[in-house]
Computed example of a mutant assay.
Amino acid sequence: MKVAKVVAINISEEKGQPKQAIDKGYFAVNCGLRGDAHAGEWHRQVSLLGNESIDKIKKLGFDNLATGSFAENITTEGLILYELPVGTKLKVGETIMEVTQIGKECHMGCAIREKTGDCVMPREGIFAKVITPGWIKPGDVLERLN
């Protein structure tokens, strides 16, 4: 079985904007990724999207997409994220997170949809809250705990 892993950690200062890749990120309890526009005390502290989902949009002719293009905090590969039930616990790097939501409503005027013509995040992105804090970096293993 292929090991699931973190491909990139992405951050932005404003909501609704593509995120930029960083070397590593600190994910805090009741916050999410420190310094990110979406961080805070709510159920969507951290957003995750699989390369498998991004590849679907690339196949539509959008080959200029980078990690963070869909405003995900963590880009992954090797695990179909949107098939995980709410309540699933994931060990990601030093952290443990709990899946809180699958997909979301896409707001109109989204910079991501304008750039790509389609935003896969509302259908296949997932959201989580941080249970155990710590650092996450590209290459870290992503493990389903339950």
Rank of each mutant, 00 (worst) to 15 (best):
Y82W: 12
K89P: 03
E94N: 08
W42G: 11
G61I: 11
I54H: 07
H38S: 11
N51L: 15
K19N: 02
M1G: 13
Y82M: 08
V99I: 15
V120K: 03
A128F: 02
L90W: 00
D36F: 11
I112R: 07
A8I: 04
K137E: 14
E114Q: 14
E114R: 14
G68S: 08
A128V: 03
N146L: 10
L60M: 15
V46I: 13
E77T: 02
P85N: 09
T76A: 09
T67W: 11
D118W: 14
T75R: 02
C110M: 00
F27C: 06
K24A: 13
T76L: 04
G68K: 12
T67N: 13
E98M: 14
M97N: 01
E13R: 13
L79G: 01
G32N: 03
G50F: 03
P122Q: 03
K89Y: 01
S12N: 13
I136S: 04
T100S: 15
A28M: 07
F127I: 03
L49P: 02
Y82R: 11
V141I: 13
A39Q: 12
H43N: 11
C106I: 09
G139C: 08
P122N: 03
H43F: 15
M108T: 13
G134C: 01
N146I: 01
F70W: 08
V46K: 07
V46W: 07
E14V: 14
R144M: 14
V46C: 08
F70L: 04
N10W: 05
F127G: 06
I80H: 06
Q20H: 09
A111V: 09
K19T: 11
I9V: 15
I57S: 03
K15Q: 09
A71Q: 08
G117C: 08
T95W: 01
G93R: 00
C110E: 08
G35P: 00
L49S: 04
Q45C: 00
